[in-house]
Structure formats: structure tokens, C-alpha cells
Amino acid sequence: MSPTPSGAAAAVGGAVDTVLDRSVVLGFSRIGPAVRRRLPTWPADPAPGALIGRHAAVTGATSGLGLATALGLLRLGATVHLVVRNPEKAERARATLLDEVPDGAVEIHLCDVADLDDVRRVSAELLAAVPHLDVLVHNAGAMPPTRTESPQGHELTMALHVLGPVLMTELLLPAMTGRHARVVLVTSGGMYAQRLREDDPEYRTGDYSGTTAYARSKRAQVELLPVLQERWAGAGVEVYATHPGWADTPGVVDSLPTFHRLTGPVLRDAAEGAETTVWLVAQDPPPPGGGLWHDRRERPTHVRPGTRTEGASVRRLWDWVADGARLADGGARA
């Protein structure tokens, strides 16, 4: 356990941490964790075996942040459930995980999280197969270059990053109730540049941009955190978003080649990007939910003028989510 820093040391450490965060390049790159780990305010690592006896599901876990998250959870003793689309990639991911942790337990559940019917199917499968669920990490992501729709006719990034995760969590609540369970939405720093577009959640107006759509959907995740925390608190579930920083993943290489070329030397590796998600779900007792976390610290959700959101806008977005996911009680608990 890390010693408690003195008041002066904590103040200096907190100030350095904040400067890193506001600088963006220093805080989001691999420089951020390299410096923060040396500060007296850096929290202790999870205890070995912290997740023994726990079940954890990770979506999009065949590569990049998802695979790194699954490995981190497996190393702490969790039984890990890979919720993924591609069966061949899933088997390769399971083999990779078991090479690293030979006595680990890894299960595969096939699902396209953007397809709400498939989410309903896999949620029923998980409820039947898993005695309880302690961790649910919504990591699956995509950045289509042109406007694409899900099988239910929703803009793909909003279906995959918002509708699917909300519906899956709702359906899996019976397995999480009373478990001090944690739900994590893996978001992106790109959301800092966008305001909430509850007036056009399907991105039907204006020239479509894949990067903008991705960032808008991530902004929606973050804005919904207080609603989701209140909604699921009765089940004892804590809800977080985690920002991985700038991580070198296949998604970045494929979708943002210029960004990858320019920032490659300072990008975090996938394990560094997933580190806060793994740390957060292993804390006992859990930190209060409803916030955005990065490098083991809760962070502001707005850093640029013009992106702040009024409560009425969030409520309108929630009504759209509840309607799109066909939640049984609509927005009654929003």
C-alpha cells in the first residue's frame, strides 16, 4: 500500500497531475503515466488476486484496449468473458490470454453490440451461463468512414457505443444486483471537442464525418453517466467512464493513420491505455460512480468553452436512448 502523502506533497502532486491533464499532449501520451507514477499522489496497485471469484465481461476484447483489459482482469484472478463479434479472432484472443495466464478461465460469447437483437440474445446467454457478474466493460468500438446504420436503423457509432451498452447493462442487472458490480464505458479524449448533439443523435444533418460521429457518441456516453448512475444505483452498481489517453491500438492505426504517424513515438501501449479500467474495477471499496476517470483520478468532463450541457438536453438524449433500446419503463428512472 502506498504511504499517505503529506499535505504539501499531495498539493504539489495534484498540481503536477492537473498540469499534465490540461496540457493534453503530456497527459494523454505515455509521458502522463510515466510522470504520474512517480508522484506521491499515485494510488496503490490492486492487490494480487483482487478479482478471484469474480466474473468480468469485456466487449470488443479481441485486440487493443479490450484484449489488454481482459488480460489485466485475468491476471487479478477474474473469470473473463469475451463478448466479441468474430469467432476466429475470439479463439486467438483466448489463446493469447491463456498463454499469459495458463490457469486462467476465459469464456467466449459472440455478439455484435450494435445489433440490439443480438444484445438481447447474448444477455440471455450470459444470464444462463454466469452465476453472477461483477464487472462489465463496454469497450467495443468502431469509426466508420461513411454514415452506416445498425440492423435496427440507428447510426452505427451511437448504436455501438450508447444504445447497445445501455441495453446490455439493463438486461444483465439481475446478475449484478447486490454484487457491488462495476460498469465501465471506455470513452475517448475526442469527446472533449464535441458538445452533446441530442438534437441530432442519428447524425442525419450536415456532412458526415466518422471522427466527429465517434466523438459525439463518446460525448453522449459521458453526459449520460449521472443518469445511468442514478438509474442503476438501486442494484448496487457503480458506473464509470474511463479515458485511455492516446493509445497505440489497431483501431487508431486503421481509422486515424495520420494521427498515428505524427504521435507514434509518444503513444501509450494498449496495457497503459487499459490500466485505469483494470485498476478501477479492482478497488475495494469501489470509488463513487458517475464520473470520468483517467490515470487513476476522476477528471473533468468539459475543458473547452461551448461544450457544456444543460440538464434538459441530457434528458432529451436519455429519452432517445430509452426509446431506441426499447427499455421496458422508458425514461421513467432518468
Rank of each mutant, 00 (worst) to 15 (best):
P3M: 05
E125V: 15
W293E: 08
V24M: 13
L74R: 02
A15N: 12
G306T: 07
T18R: 14
V237M: 08
S29A: 03
L160A: 12
A129T: 05
A193Y: 10
L156R: 03
L280W: 05
A328S: 08
I31C: 09
P300H: 08
L73D: 01
P3T: 00
G141K: 03
G153Y: 05
T146K: 12
D103M: 11
R296H: 09
V84W: 14
T301V: 15
V137D: 12
K218T: 03
W279E: 01
R197G: 12
L20K: 01
S63W: 02
W279L: 04
L160V: 11
M176L: 07
A159K: 01
Q221P: 03
V106Y: 05
V80A: 09
S23F: 07
W232N: 08
G66A: 03
L126Y: 12
P102D: 02
V184Q: 08
Y203K: 11
W318T: 07
G331Y: 00
A129D: 12
S217K: 02
V135D: 09
V25T: 14
H132Y: 13
L228T: 05
A213T: 02
T277H: 09
G178I: 03
P46M: 00
H138V: 13
K218G: 06
E100F: 06
T258V: 15
T307C: 10
G189Y: 01
G264W: 13
E149M: 14
V227A: 13
A332S: 08
L163T: 03
C111I: 05
G64Q: 00
M143V: 11
G251S: 00
G77C: 06
L51R: 02
D323G: 10
D319F: 08
D295M: 07
A50F: 00
R316S: 13
W42Q: 06
P257M: 05
W232H: 10
A93R: 05
R54P: 09
A233Y: 10
H81Q: 12
A213V: 02
G210P: 02
A325E: 02
P43T: 01
P288Q: 13
D199Q: 08
L127W: 04
G234K: 04
D295C: 05
P286E: 09
H109D: 13
L116W: 04
P151S: 10
A312R: 06
G306W: 06
T79G: 12
A247D: 00
D207W: 08
A270W: 00
R179T: 09
G264H: 14
V83Q: 12
A10K: 08
D117Y: 08
V314F: 11
A282S: 07
Y203C: 13
R147W: 04
S209P: 06
H132Q: 15
A159D: 09
H138P: 15
C111E: 07
V166N: 03
P300V: 09
A215R: 00
W232A: 10
G32L: 01
P145S: 14
G27K: 01
